[in-house]
Design a protein around this nucleic acid. Sequence first.
DNA 1: TAAACTAATCGTCTATTGGCGATAAACAAA
DNA 2: TTTGTTTATCGCCAATAGACGATTAGTTTA
Lengths: 131, 131
Amino acid sequence: MNGAVSSSLMSTKINDSEYHPTYGNSSQKQMKRSLEQIEYKENTEALARFAKALGHPTRIAILKHLDNQSCCFTGDLVEVFPLAQSTISQHLKELKNAGLIQGELKPPKIKYCINQDNWKIAKALFQQFFD
Amino acid sequence: MNGAVSSSLMSTKINDSEYHPTYGNSSQKQMKRSLEQIEYKENTEALARFAKALGHPTRIAILKHLDNQSCCFTGDLVEVFPLAQSTISQHLKELKNAGLIQGELKPPKIKYCINQDNWKIAKALFQQFFD
DNA sequence: TAAACTAATCGTCTATTGGCGATAAACAAA
DNA sequence: TTTGTTTATCGCCAATAGACGATTAGTTTA
């Protein structure tokens, strides 16, 4: 999963012509389909992955905060949001997995910042999507 | 839920100064918090709602298809995607609830199109979010 | 009216998400 | 080495999401 994410993030191509979902195994009748069994265009999946990471108000707010402060520590966020430390940590993990942020070790703290490279990619993907 | 969505969609203000999450009830100790107990800025929630709707590759692909064809019927999508009719219908419902598409009765079919007004709002929200 | 067609909804199942407290891990400082 | 600080992870739980087949509902057409 992570591999697929980073490979799509590495790509500089952001153009899409058409999608072509295909069957995982059409001989079986009515097998339960999982996400992996349908092939979407690379950009479609990348965009959905970014969108999913943005699909929670706390994560949007975290990113806005990160953008304002340019960077911050996990502990700062725990003070700002009325959520348990473990919950904040979980949201940060998801943002990190999506490639939208990155953590830098500043022992004993960890400084989180926007991942500018992937941010640009996400921006471009949404931009082209909305025309 | 639907009410909150449409009210935010009706708003023409798309500027955000700062978010200010607040406690639902700080006297209770460690009550389980639900989304409704935290107040985010209007735009933060609206953006998250749009993003959530875009957070599945099938829905992205449906929107791209809708954009290409300008409009289409549910049945068309069922032929294009290797998914059950009920599944497609469910995705359409979510896109409709998010305000991204709208259905027009063309008995006995239903023609789905992008909701241009809300599309513009979503576009603006993402645009401002990414600076 | 009856039959056919289209799409939404219902019920069920499994997987994922989002919340929490508790614990573990990593490191600095005493 | 021990202690304190910070953050990640674990285990649990409830709620949501996403898939399906079957059924229902609404319209056309025969």
